[in-house]
Design a protein around this nucleic acid. Structure first.
Lengths: 194, 194
DNA sequence: TGCTTTACGTTGCACTTGCAACGCGAAGGA
DNA sequence: TCCTTCGCGTTGCAAGTGCAACGTAAAGCA
């Protein structure tokens, strides 16, 4: 056999190219040939590692999900529930170039999920995990009179996703979004003197 | 000349077909021929009313925007700032079939906007108007110690957009979303006894 | 030295896409 | 009555699409 390559790293390479194309030109422009060109390889190689385009899409989605997950777990967990939840949610805001790319990809995939049940299920599962993690922290914090943990979690995650859309669309800037998030965190964790 | 038709109603008819295709099969499947088929006309007629596909897309976006706007203005304005803001925001949640379709279209167009500056500008303007309307109501209500009006408005609009995504994705049900919205309205308008 | 397997590259095909171009019948005005 | 103009329908085309099929060089095992 030839050079014996690691298939997973090859697939990741292609997935990265896909994500770049998706972020810069939209999901409609994601084709075998465009991805191949972006990765600097031939279309035949793409076909070698993904039997179908859909398989490639799903794998790319897995890559972003794993990457976000990894970022959430890296570094020591901050002190206190509020800080931990904040750390989680900030990862979803497009505050730098990497996260902006991921944000654009996320929007594209939300639209894509509308027609692909498998993709939709994946996003649903991710969202569920995120909500539960946050609800647990809110419950642990035992905020006195604010929202119940489930609703607070749903609210915070939704808020951040909405903020991400507005930041990416240029409707508001990242600072305003961060400030808004801080305010809502205060509410959810019932800051003293509210 | 032949039967002398109203061009605007024809274009609206085609735009409706486009929206149905976009909602049911995604924006990637929106093509001249599919739209024509959905509308029950020939592809040639579509070309007659829209010189380019992009022109058709933008017109369709205008149609939804106008429709949402019309719905916001119909009926008497509710009593009190909180109720008025609630009425605004509920229109953006997919609580029935019509709004679900519009929600799917909205997501698709947010993704589309990433590559079309003209579309992005349109969405930005719509969002700005919505935020200002809400900020004005919040300010008028003079909520004592909660968020400042600008942030509250950004937060509420983002929250609702995020909730819409989660409802459409099947992550949470409409009732939960509504309840979450109520809770956040209470916070923004600083309900007694918080 | 074969022989097989891996990892691609190449070619081709059926199909869809946006769009231009042309045709053409039905209405009016002259 | 002619003749223009509008409202489409039809056809065609170059480009792009996903995917199958085949070829083929390299690397290991026998």
């Amino acid at each position: 056999m030839p050079k014996q390559v690691d298939p997973h790293s090859r697939r990741t390479l292609l997935a990265d190219a896909l994500l770049r194309v998706a972020a810069s030109r939209g999901l409609m422009d994601v084709s075998l040939r465009h991805v191949a060109a972006e990765a600097g390889v031939t279309a035949g190689m793409v076909q070698h590692y993904f039997r179908t385009k859909d398989e490639m899409m799903v794998f790319a989605l897995d890559v972003v999900a794993a990457r976000v997950q990894a970022r959430l777990e890296e570094g020591p967990a901050p002190d206190g529930p509020r800080a931990r939840v904040r750390a989680l949610l900030v990862q979803l805001l497009p505050v730098d170039a990497d996260r902006e790319l991921e944000g654009r990809v996320a929007i594209a995939f939300h639209a894509y999920a509308a027609t692909r049940p498998a993709v939709a299920a994946r996003l649903r599962e991710d969202a569920r995990r995120m909500r539960e993690a946050i609800a647990a922290e809110v419950a642990a914090a035992g905020a006195p009179g604010a929202l119940d943990p489930q609703r607070a979690a749903t609210g915070l995650v939704s808020l951040v996703e909405g903020l991400a859309i507005h930041v990416l669309g240029g409707h508001v800037d990242a600072d305003h979004a961060l400030a808004t998030l801080e305010g809502h965190l205060d509410l959810a964790f019932a800051l003293p003197r509210l």
